[in-house]
Amino acid sequence: MATAAPTAPAAAGDDAPAPVDNPRPRWRGGETRAALLFVAPAMVGFLAFFAWPTLRGLYLSFTDYDLLTSADFSGLDNYRRLLEDEVFWNSLWVTLKYVAINISVQTFAALLLAVLIHRLTRSVVLRGIILLPYLISNVVVALLWYWMADYNLGVINEMLGWVGFDPVAFFGDESWAIPTIAMVNVWRHLGYTALLIFAGLQMINRDVYEAAAVDGAGEVRVFFRITLPLLRPVMALVMVLTVIGSWQIFDTVAVTTQGGPVDATRVVQYYIYDQAFNRFDFGYASAISVVLFLILAGVALAQLKLLRADESDQS
């Protein structure tokens, strides 16, 4: 450990030529060559499937492109069309509703679950159980709940019947469809989100709790006065991750309602898919993707600012 601290990301990198204290100067040229070989496959993947398509997507958004003929540059036409496209604005609104329901319920429930686990048990088995829904595919989750929420035979409506409610067309009713899909995905992500928060809880210094206990503070008070403030940076990161994921809702909609009834579940990503692969309007679909991209970037920035993620209260 005498020569270099291995955890420091060797800030001397970049263009700096061989530092004087380098103990093995004769490997330099070979080192660079070896490094390039090591990075090469990942670089190919990065350029071909991340960098190039990002630029191409941006370019396509300024074109008229139907996949068959080559893309014609059309300036801002796609964006102008967006402004007047009511289905697009509706899709933004629908997605916003979905994100609002999904994130508020999920964050609240996950925080509760994380604190419960933290205060009650160390069991890894239990943490494994709550993670289970996250490990199965969106498609499986969607079909499973589609069946359980079926109007005629679904067990949820059966149980509603036991307590005297009329059956609900969870996926088929315009006002129910989005809340239903939001709750299905809460079920899938609850455990995962709770474990992210749980990781944050474990980082809080135990001394703080002991001090509070000495002062005779109750559970609730400790939660609001100590846990929550100390957890804020973690909550901020969790919110950024989950909100960004939530905006990209697609699989559940594609498998169950396919945008319907009417346009009640035509979320942004489904609309993009619809424009690109059902109407072969790749230019327009790309323009919507650009808008979605900008929204996500804005959401991330705004959240980090609002929740002051970079400032920890624990010093």
């Binding site: 990065f46 071909a48 499937f49 991340f50 960098a51 190039w52 398509p53 990002t54 191409r56 997507g57 396509l60 996949l67 960004i244 905006w247 990209q248 697609f250 990503q269 993009i272 898919y273 690109a276 790749f282 679909a285 790309s286 993707s289 650009v290 979605l292 991209f293 996500l296 970037a297 991330a300």
Partner: peptide, 17 residues
């Protein structure tokens, strides 16, 4: 940085490729 790019954004051009 590529972590920030939403998959749907790259998936359309990737499909074309």
């Amino acid at each position: 940085t590529a972590l920030m790019v939403p998959p749907v954004f790259t998936m359309l051009p990737n499909f074309v490729l």
